[in-house]
C-alpha cells in the first residue's frame, strides 16, 4: 500500500519514541544484547557520552552498540523479563487497567441492550420514535377494527338477504311448480265409469279446490299451476297442459284438509256435478301429501323484474 510508506518518516513516528540519548534507551539496547553484565557495564560506563542525534528509525552507528534488533527477534527480546524498575510496575498497572476496563466494557455491551449506555438525546430520540410508531399502530388498529365491524355488519345483512331470498325462492318454486312440495292435504280420486267427465268438470273441480285454499295440486302426473289449461280429448281422457291424462283422475292436493274436504261436498258443488255425470269421487284426508311432479321454469322473453315494488 502506498499510503503506508508515509509512516516510515521519522516525524510520523508517534509520541512514544524517546530520543536515543535517554538512559532508559541505552539500558534497553543493552538488554537487546542478551542482557550480558558486561554490556550493561559498558552502557553504564559512558552514560554521559554524547550521542549523535540521529532519526530514530535510522540504524545506529554508535560504537559499542549494535543496531536495535527488528522483527520477531526484537519482540522476543522485548518480552524477556528485565530488571524490575518502578516504571515497569506502572506499565503493568496501566496495562492491567486497560485489560480490566476493556473486559468491563465488553461485558457492558454484551448486556441485554445498550440503552443504559445511550446518551440523553439519543434516548429522547428513541422514545420519540417509539411514540410515533405506537401512534401509527394505534391508528392502524382503529382502521382495522372499523373495517372488521363494517365487514361483519355487511356479512350479517347479506346473510339475512340470502335466507330471505331462499325462502322466497322455495315459495315461488312451489307456486310455479318447479319444485316438489309436501304437506297436509287430500287425495281426490275420480272414477269416470261413464266417460262423461270432460275438461270443464275438471277445471271446475280445480277452481273449487283453489277457492278452498289449495296450494299445490297435481293431477295424475301433471303439475297444476296458474297457467294450466284443460282441453277435451277422447272420451275418458283430458288433455292437461298438452299431456293426455286418462281416467281415473287422481288429484293430489296440499292445503287445509278440513277446508278442502267440505268444499268439495257442498250442495250443488263438485261432488253433485260429478254424481250427475255418473262418476264416483272419493276423498282421502292425509297428514302428508307429496306433490312430486314438477314442470320446467318458464323462460321469460319480455318481462323483467321492476326495481320499484
Amino acid at each position: 500500500m502506498q499510503n503506508d510508506e508515509r509512516d516510515d518518516k521519522p516525524d510520523a513516528s508517534l509520541d512514544y519514541g524517546a530520543p536515543p540519548e535517554r538512559e532508559d534507551e541505552t539500558l534497553l539496547i543493552a538488554g537487546h544484547q542478551f542482557g550480558g553484565q558486561a554490556a550493561q557495564d559498558a552502557a553504564a560506563a559512558e552514560p554521559e557520552a554524547p550521542m549523535p542525534q540521529v532519526p530514530s528509525t535510522l540504524p545506529r552507528v554508535e560504537p559499542g552498540f549494535s543496531p536495535p534488533p527488528a522483527g520477531f527477534r526484537g519482540l522476543i527480546t522485548a518480552l524477556r523479563v528485565r530488571r524490575a524498575a518502578p516504571t515497569q510496575f506502572v506499565i503493568a498497572v496501566l496495562c492491567g487497567l486497560l485489560g480490566f476496563f476493556a473486559v468491563v466494557q465488553l461485558r457492558l455491551q454484551a448486556d441485554d441492550n445498550n440503552l443504559r449506555t445511550a446518551r440523553q438525546s439519543d434516548l429522547i430520540r428513541i422514545l420519540d420514535d417509539l411514540n410515533d410508531r405506537s401512534e401509527r399502530l394505534d391508528s392502524e388498529v382503529r382502521d382495522l377494527e372499523q373495517r372488521r365491524s363494517e365487514l361483519q355488519s355487511g356479512s350479517d345483512r347479506s346473510k339475512a338477504a340470502l335466507s330471505e331470498a331462499q325462502d322466497r325462492r322455495s315459495v315461488l318454486g312451489i307456486l310455479a311448480g318447479t319444485v316438489p312440495a309436501r304437506g297436509p292435504g287430500i287425495l281426490l280420486r275420480i272414477v269416470d265409469s261413464q266417460q262423461k267427465v270432460d275438461a270443464a268438470v275438471l277445471l271446475d273441480t280445480l277452481q273449487e279446490l283453489r277457492d278452498a285454499g289449495a296450494e299445490a295440486v297435481q293431477i295424475n302426473d301433471v303439475r297444476v299451476v296458474a297457467s294450466t289449461d284443460f282441453l277435451d280429448a277422447a272420451p275418458g281422457s283430458v288433455q292437461i297442459d298438452g299431456v293426455v291424462v286418462t281416467a281415473p283422475y287422481l288429484f293430489k292436493v296440499i292445503g287445509d284438509p278440513d277446508t278442502l274436504d267440505p268444499a268439495l261436498r257442498i250442495p250443488g258443488g263438485v261432488f253433485a256435478v260429478l254424481g250427475e255425470r255418473g262418476a264416483t269421487p272419493t276423498v282421502e284426508t292425509r297428514r302428508q301429501v307429496t306433490v312430486d311432479a314438477t314442470r320446467p321454469a318458464a323462460d321469460l322473453d319480455y318481462a323483467r323484474p321492476s326495481e320499484t315494488n
Binding site: D15, Y16, A18, R22, A85, V90
Partner: peptide
C-alpha cells in the same frame, strides 16, 4: 511500535 523501532521509553509510555 516504539518497542520494535527500538525507541521505547517507559516514562513516555506511562
Amino acid at each position: 511500535r516504539a518497542l520494535l523501532d527500538g525507541i521505547f521509553s517507559d516514562k513516555v509510555f506511562v
